[in-house]
Design a protein around this nucleic acid. Sequence first.
DNA 1: AAATTAATCAAACGTTCGTTTAAATTTTTT
DNA 2: AAAAAATTTAAACGAACGTTTGATTAATTT
Lengths: 216, 216
Amino acid sequence: MENQIIEGKEPKERILNAAASLFASKGYAAVGVREIADLAQVNVSMISYYFNGKFGILKEIILRYFQEVRQIYEQTWAKNLPPEDALRTIVSELVNLIKNKTIFCKVAITEMPFNLPEFSDFKAEVVRLHIDYIKQGLKLIELFVDDPKYGSIITPAMISLIFSHFLFGPLIKKVWSVETDDEYYDLYAKTISTLMLEGIMGIKKLIEQNNQGEQK
Amino acid sequence: MENQIIEGKEPKERILNAAASLFASKGYAAVGVREIADLAQVNVSMISYYFNGKFGILKEIILRYFQEVRQIYEQTWAKNLPPEDALRTIVSELVNLIKNKTIFCKVAITEMPFNLPEFSDFKAEVVRLHIDYIKQGLKLIELFVDDPKYGSIITPAMISLIFSHFLFGPLIKKVWSVETDDEYYDLYAKTISTLMLEGIMGIKKLIEQNNQGEQK
DNA sequence: AAATTAATCAAACGTTCGTTTAAATTTTTT
DNA sequence: AAAAAATTTAAACGAACGTTTGATTAATTT
């Protein structure tokens, strides 16, 4: 992930892209505003001018991420697909989103587990803002396995599966090198969705076996 | 994740625990040494005395994590289990490790995607140090699906599955609340390993179907 | 008990942090 | 063309950063 000088475009977009690149590489808190300004080739006070401060950049990135994800969900629901196809489509579209906007998505997802004070409030607000389609996503899982306990396990699992290559892939890269072209990401999406679906079917079977065991 | 004042024990352990708690909550870079010292009830210069500085704490945490994981792998190989049982055991043991040492494991795993300069060298060294059992872990996946492309997808997927509840669970908690007792984590381990195994079997089938398709 | 080592402490160091301020410059509007 | 608005700039602010330093205290060794 090279931190190339961000050229062209408007200063605001340059700041956003520079910051995203740096946040994805080092994490939000480890990046200073002067570093962002240098990379974006702007004056440091422009960060306050355009984004009301450093945190404003992070907010913008995360809002954009959630907006993109929302769009994918909404477009998939609009197709009225059967559950399996819906899940495959969502996974495929999400992988595509992450592939095309790796940096933005990585920033959003890697800041999720942290509870910085100012960030907590914002995170709660974003979840509230998007709660409708998050719930619809959960309902999709419930079409397969209708039990909150399993749902609460499977939903985070699905998120992390989709992101797994982008978060942990580089670490494993030390062991082998695989060409990550478009074909790879197609295979990735197919593999992840297969893993999800077959896994969920296996869990469903497990539950049914347990229920039969309990009826005897 | 409450940042309780860390009492008792030796100062060194108190610093370690305080730091781990704060790193897990906010990320390494967002935590200052004075905050750690306050929480651990020590003088700030003791961080340099005992750990040679802030980064030394992070190194210690990550080394301990990898050591624990290594132990799990080694104990599992020593049992000479069939592949399915081996995978289930590893998942179950890893989930248990993370449950019991959530904070330490979370710190280790959430810093993985970042490339802080001093951290990159250390990360590369840790991977080199543990490369033998990392490779054995990859071989376990290859017993199911013997193709580097799939292996390079499935292995990060397995890591992220195991951690999914601990990273993204709190976010989903806004939607529903589930009692996370010991029974929950047993179910979690069983669900994750089932999802993995059934998913891998599904991918295996997919590959075989593709190979049959290519032979015609 | 005295000497040595280890642990703890307060203060300081040099640097960096994000934000603010007011002036200068550029762009847009009248 | 002049006025207003927007953008950019350099400098400064107050705070925080991680580490170092040397003194003090406590623990261990002789």
